[in-house]
């Protein structure tokens, strides 16, 4: 038999590793959706910008992507905050539908800015650890993939603690469901919008650092992730945290197994298939409650 256990196992492992990154990208998206009730169309472009920033930090200053992680998280947080306060918030005039269009506009600008600055070339980085292998059972996983998986889980955990335990997290959840009530306990709702957007974008800073040692960057790279991240957000349940994490892992494994059995070109069919199946049986997504 061609597809014996070790091959399938390593395929599943590779899928999980990629799924971790998917989850991280989807997490920011679902967080922003949950609070602002809009899909952030600039998500993929912001991830691309973050990846170019990581690439630049290495090429010009020689800063390793993993070392750059705290810097990138802080930088993307700042970018997200300024973007919301300066562009998305003021230009949307409180209308959810406008926010959607403004984020789409931001995406178009960022994509073309990247094309202008970096051309359409695909770039990769090479690090001494790029091809180091780690043995997990019968599977061999490259070290950067393992790090990206564990890193993604760690970021998810930190984010969950932030949202679940801190006053800021409670305020974010409060604003998500009851804006008027939030105003009356003294929560600055507009500021929570900006902070939520910033946190969602900060996730992309982490994702970019974890991703780059095993992935390429080009001005179109965001599209690879954002379509999948949209799928994960819907599949996991719009606005659900756990949904984004589990959904990310499911999609990662599905994609890897699809690629193994059907070939790279057809592998993506699996994603659509599992997406349709889950929504058939749970229309609100895996962890989406009825509204």
């Amino acid at each position: 038999m061609i597809y014996d256990f070790p091959i399938i196992f390593s395929s599943v492992m590779n899928g999980l590793m990629l799924g971790g990154i998917y989850a991280l990208v989807a997490l920011g998206l679902t967080l922003i959706y949950g609070v602002l009730h809009i899909i952030n169309f600039a998500h993929g472009s912001l991830l691309m910008i973050a990846m170019f920033a990581v690439w630049l930090l290495l090429e010009t200053l020689g800063i390793d992507p993993y070392v750059a992680l705290p810097l990138m998280v802080a930088g993307m947080f700042g970018l997200g905050y300024v973007l919301y306060k300066g562009v998305v918030g003021p230009m949307s005039h409180g209308e959810d539908a406008n926010i959607l269009l403004v984020t789409l506009g931001v995406a178009v600008i960022l994509d073309n800015l990247a094309l202008y600055l970096f051309t359409g070339d695909t770039r990769i980085i090479e690090r001494p650890y790029s091809f180091e292998m780690v043995e997990i059972g019968p599977a061999l996983i490259t070290l950067p993939k393992l790090i990206s998986f564990l890193g993604s889980l760690a970021v998810c955990l930190v984010l969950w603690l932030l949202i679940d335990r801190t006053d800021l997290g409670k305020a974010i959840r409060a604003v998500a469901k009851e804006r008027q009530g939030a105003r009356l306990v003294g929560i600055d709702v507009e500021n929570i919008f900006a902070l939520t957007y910033a946190i969602g974008v900060a996730c992309l800073g982490a994702a970019a650092c974890l991703l780059l040692p095993t992935f390429y960057v080009s001005p179109q790279v965001g599209n690879v992730f954002v379509i999948i991240a949209f799928t994960i957000v819907v599949l996991g349940g719009m606005g659900s945290f756990l949904g984004a994490l589990v959904g990310g892992l499911i999609i990662g494994v599905t994609e890897a197994l699809g690629g193994l059995f059907l070939g790279e070109a057809l592998g993506q069919i699996g994603i659509s298939l599992i997406f349709i199946l889950i929504l058939l049986f749970r229309p609100t997504g895996l962890f989406g409650g009825a509204k």
């Binding site: 959840r173 009851e178 939030a182 929560i187």
Partner: peptide, 17 residues
């Protein structure tokens, strides 16, 4: 205008935000 998705304790805690 309570926060329906938060627990009773969390609602009270946010009263002292």
């Amino acid at each position: 205008r309570i926060f329906p998705n938060l627990s009773v304790r969390e609602n009270l805690e946010l009263g002292s935000y």
